[in-house]
Structures are given as C-alpha cells and as structure tokens.
C-alpha cells in the first residue's frame, strides 16, 4: 500500500488502443446472397409494403375508432364486399371518448400514477444501477460470475412468479395499493435490467482515460462522476427510457400491487370492460393514450433499442 507505484495494467483482454470497429461499408454492389436486380427490388418493396400495412393497420384502425362515434366504429361492410373497406374512413371526428376518460373515468389520475411510478422506479433503478454497474465492471470480486448470474436471473423470472410472494409480503407491510409499493415492485425488474445494460456500456469504455485521471490525482468518486458517467451517458439515458417504458406498460404489478388507489393506465383500460358492457370507444382512446408516448420514447432511443432489449447481448 505504501509505495503507490502507478502500474497501469490494461484490464481488458482487447488492446484498448485499437480503434473501435467501424461499420462495414454498405455500398456493396451485391447483397449478401444475390445480385441486385430490378425484379428483386420489386419483390423487396412488395414484401415491405405488406409488412408495413400489417404493422400499422391495427394502430390506424384503432386510432380512427377512437375518434368515431360508437355507431361509426361498429360499421363493417357485408362479408365479401371488398369495396366497402372505404367505410373505415367514413366518419365525422368526435372527441367524446377522450373527454369521457378524463371527466368520468379518472384517467387524469391514472396517467399521474403511471408517471410517478415509472419515473420514480426508473430513477432508483438508474442511479443504483449506474453505481453498481461501474463497480461490477471495474472491480474484481470473488465469485463475480455468480453475482452476475444472480443479477441477470432476477430479471428473467416470470412476472406472475414474482408477484405472488410480493403481494403477500407487501400486504403484511401495508404497502399494497400505494405508489411507493408500486415503485418498489417495478424496481424488482428495472434495477437488474439497468445495472446489466449500463455495465455493458462501462465495459466498452477504454480504461486508460480513467487511469489517466487517477494519475492526475482525482479520487475514485471524481473519476466516476466526471469521466465514466459522462462517457456512458447514452447508455444511462437508454436504460432510463427503457425502465420508464417497461413500468408504464406493465399491467400485472399495477393490477395486483397497485390495487385501488394506485391505478395506472393499463389497469384503467381493463376496467372499461365491465360485466355489463365493453366500452369500446373509451377503450380505443385510452389505448391511444397508453401507446403514443411510448412509441415516441422508443423512437428517441432507437439507436440503443436492440442493445437495450437484449441487455447488451446484441449490438446494432
């Protein structure tokens, strides 16, 4: 300990001096398997067009139904009357379903609950996850493999399995039906996820930069805060956004743990399907409210989406 000799031992097997692999050039004259031909191009675009229609059709149909009157939304043509498809677009827009959600069904507070629970849990997960990821990435621990496996395995447990014990444990602590309870419940899957994802980003940083800062006399904490975190920022942001997305979209935890007083939007939607009737107008507009913000968030972190959803196993 006494002789503070600065041994700058390269930590990772790959020489960090090597520049990052650039993307392979895309301007090949041929594709992977066959030559580019006009016919191939047409086939490509026909298949893509079909896929895009298949992707967007449910959203367009539901989106339009959310601003139709019930009568218009239920109007399908006779079977086999293919020309009748245009009926989808015959309507006069109304906002009555959206208004109902906020005036009669209490969706204002459901949105608020969803926001608080998802942002709160994402914050906890990302703050603790960033710290933990840095520790796990840079530190040397005995049984490091076991720690890693334990962390990742908590994320893979089926949601129903986690909920059963949590429900009864939370009940004895009086945490059912509260927002803090819901935040803790979401943290069960967000924390391990964000830790693992952010660790991948720290692993990719060349350790020399941090070592140089150490040599300049910065403390561990200063290096972490001023060097490592800014460099891993994209990963941290991606982890935060994905945590918000998972929690906002969750139904099971919200239904079981959130109970009556911490209802979120997904729970609110299912209550529009009563034993007496299914309120399709409000359901369709609530679906739109539920999905639009998440689509926007997903596109925002488009670049890291696959890396995020595979917890760093696959990069684009």
């Amino acid at each position: 300990m006494s002789g503070d000799t600065v041994t700058v031992a390269p930590k990772r097997a790959t020489p960090p001096a090597a520049p990052k692999k650039k993307k392979q050039p895309v301007q090949m004259q041929e594709t992977i398997l066959h030559k580019r031909t006009p016919v191939g191009k047409i086939v490509t675009w026909v298949v893509l067009a079909i896929w895009i229609v298949w992707t967007l059709a449910p959203l367009v149909i539901t989106g339009l139904a959310s601003i139709k009157t019930t009568r218009e939304a239920f109007a399908t043509p006779e079977y086999g009357d293919w020309g009748g498809v245009t009926k989808i677009f015959e309507f006069s827009p109304t906002s009555v379903h959206f208004k109902r959600l906020f005036t009669q069904e209490g969706f204002g507070s459901y949105i608020w609950h969803g926001l608080v629970a998802s942002v709160g849990s994402a914050l906890i997960a990302v703050i603790m996850g960033t710290l933990g990821a840095y520790g796990l990435s840079r530190g040397k621990f005995r049984r490091e493999g076991d720690i890693s496996f334990w962390i990742i395995s908590t994320r893979m447990a089926p949601a129903v399995v986690v909920i059963v014990p949590l429900y009864y444990i939370f009940r004895s602590f009086g945490m059912l039906s509260t927002l803090p309870g819901l935040i803790v419940a979401y943290t069960t899957f967000n924390l391990s996820f964000s830790l693992w994802l952010i660790k991948g980003f720290f692993d990719d940083l060349p350790i020399e930069i941090e070592e140089a800062a150490h040599v300049d006399g910065d403390s561990h904490w200063a290096v972490f805060r001023k060097v490592a975190v800014p460099l891993a920022a994209p990963g941290i942001v991606a982890a935060f956004v994905l945590c918000v997305l998972f929690s906002w979209n969750d139904f099971l935890f919200a239904a079981v743990i959130g109970g009556h007083r911490a209802k979120t939007v997904p729970v609110g939607i299912t209550e529009l399907r009563t034993t007496v009737e299914v309120l399709w107008g409000p359901i369709n507009s609530a679906t739109i409210i539920l999905i639009i913000p998440m689509i926007a968030l997903g596109i925002l972190i488009r670049k890291y989406l696959i890396q995020g959803l595979t917890m760093g196993a696959v990069r684009e």
Binding site: T55, P58, L59, N249, I283, T287, L290, I295, R302
Partner: peptide, 26 residues
C-alpha cells in the same frame, strides 16, 4: 423505425387492439 413500433406497445394494449380487430360483429 416504422417496423419497430409494435415493440413499444404495452401488451395490454396489444390485447385490446386485437380483441377489437377479432370481434365477431364489428
């Protein structure tokens, strides 16, 4: 970007989207 939209959608919403599309009367 267009193709990956469904991945962001809550499974509950996917359930309602398809319940609506598969409804036997409309």
């Amino acid at each position: 970007t267009i193709i990956l939209i469904p991945m962001m959608i809550a499974p509950v919403a996917v359930g309602f989207l398809y319940m609506y599309l598969f409804n036997s009367s409309f």
